[in-house]
Amino acid sequence: MNILVCFKVVPDLDLMPGGDWNVDSRLRVETGYVKNIINPYDESALEIALQFADKADDDQCSPGLTALTIGDSKANLHLKTLRALSFDRAVRIDSKEDLRFRPETCAALISAYINKIGKNNVVIMGRQSGVGDNAQTPLICAEMMGWPCITQVSSIEPAAGACLRVTNLVDDGTCRQTIEPPCILAIGNAPNSYLRVPTLKDIKAHGQKPVEVIDAAVLMATGGQPALPGGCELLGIEAIDRRRSGIIIEGETAAEKTQALYYSYLKGWLAGI
């Protein structure tokens, strides 16, 4: 089994100070002053792949693991960490294009990598990533590859016959299914899937191994099928104003404030429930 895990490095938008959303004339948003993180759904995808590898203890199922991202060099630190966490390959498709709202281009690059270089038969990635929030890349990738796609996946385990036992949420319940690769698995809410931290020993053993960098244009020119037409163009961005009255209850102690809250507001509101 040859597993490709795709991830995206995004600004931690929850750290943006309230109201500091500056949109320029090219509809770009200044986020350079907050730290970058691995998109949380992709972080789950990476950890789930590692957990899968831990469980696949026989040779038939023992997977090759590749971590892939698209973007500029700010992802390199994360790729090195993933190498230290025993990913066999850590690959960055170098692109300086604005891909925020172009899931079809991301899917085309991933598909080109699989077809030309990786020859992977299982692709795992988060269902959605902050910034674009398109929630479409795994689905379009599945269409380009002609592969099935399972969405809202929360766990993946090895199964007999080089198959995967996949648990995923559907709208009125949970499915637990055995599937035969090739396939694309889009990770949704997956408890206990924070990415593990490499030990010093891991870092010494693997952390200095190289990160592969592939030029996006070269990849597409030599191995890619054209992106599916997206036909979705960003015209504008506006802030969402969520302010309510925000009345702060004053008082000397917590008990005093709670009594004021209860008698001035909550008692009446609770009576209406």
Binding site: V23, V29, F101, G130, E233, L234, G236, I237, A239, I240
Partner: peptide, 17 residues
């Protein structure tokens, strides 16, 4: 119209096809 930037902003898009 839909939410973008983890629901902090809202984008206006044109679908053409």
């Amino acid at each position: 119209y839909r939410a973008i930037y983890s629901n902090y902003l809202r984008g206006r898009f044109r679908l053409g096809k």
